[in-house]
Amino acid sequence: MSIFLSILALVIILISAGLLFFLALPPKRRSRWGLRPIPAFSELVRVLGLSVEEGTRLHLTLGHAGITQPTSASALVGLQALERITAISSVSDRPPLATSGEGSLTLLSQSTLRAVYRLNNALDLYDPQRGRLTGVTPLSYAAGMLPIAYDENVSAHLIVGHYGLEIGLLCEAAVRNNAFTLAASDSLSAQAVLFATTKQPLIGEELFAIPAYLQTSPAHVASLRVQDLLRWGTVIALVLSAVLGVFGWL
């Protein structure tokens, strides 16, 4: 790893952290900027409301990436979504259910659920079994979710995390049960599968927009704005890299 790249990485991290702090501060007046509408999120909010009204269950699944793996960012986003969704629907007859295919993720989903119940002064309603491991290999994890899709009166599946093609099993079960699915993954194969098999797929980095669009906290909106700024930085870097390539300086 070259020193130049290390310094560049440090600069990116420091600038991003500074911007994140600054943009997360409450604005003095209404901002001229906002987040563009994404239809999948409006549909999700509608389905959330319906699920609470009808007493059906929401199922959020977090993937099978270990929390110390580079691919676990998607699961961290899923946990933020779980926090928000549980806060909205914890009063429902059937509180949301979180599943995962890796041990540390399961324990984190239980922590997230417990924290929401504690903050709502309803710790006696918390059941650790609402945060479940369904299987330990990618396929056994997907297979373990099928009984949930069929037997637990689930009206909506939120699929947010790292997957492979196995996620098609849950999507197919959701279609057979006429359940709503909103899905996002960081893996390209899984995105392709989700695009073909779910009603509302989120593509690519739209995954990272979930907490902001669910209005989890101002920090998440700020995070998306910094992401947009970094995006333009990346575009400039791509062009620069091409120019350097043309002159043979790369």
């Binding site: 991290i13 952290a17 933020q80 390209l188 995105q191 920090a219």
Partner: peptide, 30 residues
């Protein structure tokens, strides 16, 4: 297309990690 998607995911991942390091996201807290 894959390059564009992967770059975007990398940007989102950096910020997700940063939120944890800044204490904004605390999925471990009970």
């Amino acid at each position: 297309g894959a390059r564009g998607i992967l770059l975007g995911i990398a940007l989102g991942s950096v910020l997700t990690g940063l939120r944890v390091l800044l204490g904004m996201d605390r999925p471990y807290s009970e």
